[in-house]
């Protein structure tokens, strides 16, 4: 039995974050379905918001798991989250409208079995292991689905594998210009995996504060969303992509400012060292 070596308590309890994260992720994912109902691509940005809420939930799960000192480094938790999540997400996209629910159930099953393997077969014996790996697989699957919805405007297998390319004024359907066929999924994979593991890795220690870490997660999420919004120019109309990009930049600017404020609040002292010095006489 391993000993929980970090005794930082306080903040919102994990159950609340989990339920809130799960519900808001599913709601945001289904809000992208407005694209189909209104026959536009304007609501793709809800996919990005779904991704960010899932990441916030996931980074707190990583905190719960890694408080036990698993000895393998925090990044490994982010890698297994997305490694198991991508497998569940790709199969779930085949189920059309029900894809987010199927991804949730399938990822939970995969995560539960992986948790059993690590806790019992590999003898880790960490109390939070099974639940944490289950949650993490779900987070990985849902946030990848959020990336898919943000970049392509939908989350069905047909939508993720076909795209259109204009050639000499004609529009031709192509599988190369798509989320999966074009390999954009690999970029989304790492954007998410880095965003989920970085916050706890950066904020851990005796000065850990929940609101600061979660704000950093939101900041990392919006930063990933900016990149994904740029990629979405290739697959959805420019107007819709610009909406996503503006929301991502505004969100990033707000969360970055808030994170700096919270860091100053928690710091013992700080000195504005000005990385770019003011030039004299200019």
């Amino acid at each position: 039995m391993s000993v929980k070596i970090e005794v930082i308590e306080g903040g919102i309890p994990h159950q609340k974050i989990m339920i809130g994260g799960l519900v808001s992720t599913l709601v945001c994912l289904y809000l992208t379905y407005l694209n189909v109902l209104t026959n536009t691509e304007m609501f793709a940005f809800f996919g990005g918001l779904a991704m960010i809420t899932a990441l916030i939930w996931g980074s707190h799960t990583i905190k719960v798991l890694c408080s036990y000192g698993i000895g393998t480094g925090v990044p490994s938790a982010g890698m297994i989250a997305f490694g198991s999540g991508v497998i569940a997400m790709l199969l779930a996209t085949k189920f059309g409208m029900a894809a987010p629910i199927v991804a949730l159930v399938l990822a939970a099953v995969i995560g539960f079995i992986l948790g059993y393997i690590s806790n019992n077969i590999l003898n880790m014996k960490i109390p939070a292991m099974v639940q944490a790996l289950t949650e993490m697989a779900v987070v990985g699957a849902l946030s990848l689905m959020g990336f898919a919805a943000l970049i392509t405007g939908g989350f069905t297998f047909a939508g993720l594998t076909t795209g259109e390319v204009s050639m000499l004024g004609m529009t031709v359907s192509s599988n190369q210009i798509s989320f999966i066929g074009g390999g954009l999924i690999a970029v989304a994979f790492l954007l998410g995996a880095i965003a989920i593991q970085h916050p706890f890795n950066a904020c851990l220690g005796p000065g850990w504060k929940q609101d600061r870490m979660l704000m950093l997660t939101a900041e990392c999420g919006f930063l990933s969303m900016i990149v994904a919004a740029f990629m979405s120019f290739a697959l959805i109309s420019a107007g819709s992509a610009i909406i996503s990009l503006i929301i991502a930049i505004l969100g990033w600017a707000y969360t970055y400012n808030q994170y700096i404020c919270l860091s100053k609040r928690d710091a013992a002292a700080w000195l504005d060292a000005k990385p770019i010095p003011d030039m004299e006489g200019l």
Partner: peptide, 17 residues
Amino acid sequence: AAAGMFAVGLFLVNAVL
């Protein structure tokens, strides 16, 4: 792309375990 992504996913799961 699908085979590559599944291979990467499987790889990371095995490496972390």
